[in-house]
Design a protein around this nucleic acid. Structure first.
Lengths: 192, 192
DNA sequence: TTCTTTCTGGACCGTATGGTCCATAACTGC
DNA sequence: GCAGTTATGGACCATACGGTCCAGAAAGAA
């Protein structure tokens, strides 16, 4: 019943995510979002509520997606070390793609936490925790399958890898891809 | 001759830097800057030109200051390794200070490069290069004084440390100070 | 066709932004 | 004290922002 929607909600959200990812929350205007999604103002507000709500949906979706991606990587690779290496390689590869937004939405917004409300902060904090957990899991699996030195403190090392990953994403923003490769390579060396 | 200035330019710049550092360029309004510096609008525009010019001055000053600080650290510490350790320790200590802005101005703005013009981008890029240089210098000195393994590729490792440092600054923004310590400790371990 | 529901475009609004301008105050040198 | 110079405060401006609202278009159900 009623006139059917002329747009795909998920696709619109993906486009909006792209804009936030590229420009950051503050610098993104409703005009940007309308142009990117192709929706009318009414449709966007009707569907997503407000700029902040849309951002929250985009951020949550982005974080969930990446966490899932990491976990799948962890499942599909032969060893824990391979999974970590593949994740870093993927991060670098994305930074090379000209048509791909640079860096990481969550990291970017973490850099401007002060301007965000508590709910956004919580999502970002949770994302950091989630990534740390997956790193720790990968390390423990690597220690079981023999690809990672058994003496490592998994939690400590997970925090290290997580921190380095955030640094890599900042480097991606400045297009320092060469630097990313060196940094990731050294990080992988620490696993042996 | 003429009415003398009632404020200190350097001090005003320092206050402005603090605001940019805390909130980021986009989220900082002229009102914020006026309140922080205590100047009138006319004085601020007369002295600094525009919001962007003021930001550029703040950013340049911030980067220069930190580079100098790193170099002094390198001079004053007994070994190259000590210098690097002291730098990370200082970064973490600052992240603990409640009254201190979190993270690093340059890193924060690197996370939103897309919204900046080429001149700002150049300053940020130069800052990254400068830090990498100091890291490399510290590593080479450490290799000479025996505090750092001679087999390390200084450039490669400098990129690694630099990237990790940027990650640390992001962690500082989210108040993940515990994570910072673990990450920095692992990074220092790689020098042996 | 008609009714109902939903979507759509754009007009509109209050606010806050970065920036300009000017009258006036404050100080120095003569 | 006067002239010249500079700083100051605040009024003012155009614009752009996020957000609301409504008249009408479009499509399914009867």
């Amino acid at each position: 019943m009623g006139r059917p929607r002329e747009f795909n909600t998920q696709e619109a959200l993906a486009q909006a995510t792209r804009v936030f990812w590229t420009k950051g929350y503050d610098a993104t205007t409703m005009l940007d979002l309308l142009a990117a999604t192709g929706l009318s103002k009414s449709s966007l507000y009707e569907t997503f509520g407000s700029k902040r709500d849309l951002f929250l949906a985009a951020l949550s979706g982005y974080c969930d997606h990446r966490t899932r991606m990491m976990q799948e990587l962890l499942q599909s690779r032969p060893t824990g070390r391979d999974a970590i290496a593949a994740f870093f390689a993927l991060t670098i590869e994305q930074a090379r793609q000209e048509d791909h937004p640079f860096g990481c939405l969550s990291c970017n917004e973490a850099a401007q936490m002060e301007t965000h409300d508590t709910e956004v902060r919580r999502v970002v904090a949770r994302d950091i925790d989630a990534m740390e957990s997956v790193f720790a899991e990968a390390i423990r699996r690597g220690q079981t399958d023999g690809s990672i030195a058994p003496g490592l403190d998994a939690t400590r090392h997970a925090r290290f890898l997580n921190t380095l990953h955030h640094g890599l994403q900042i480097m991606a923003r400045t297009r320092g891809v060469d630097r990313m490769e060196a940094a990731a390579a050294v990080a992988l060396d620490t696993l042996e």
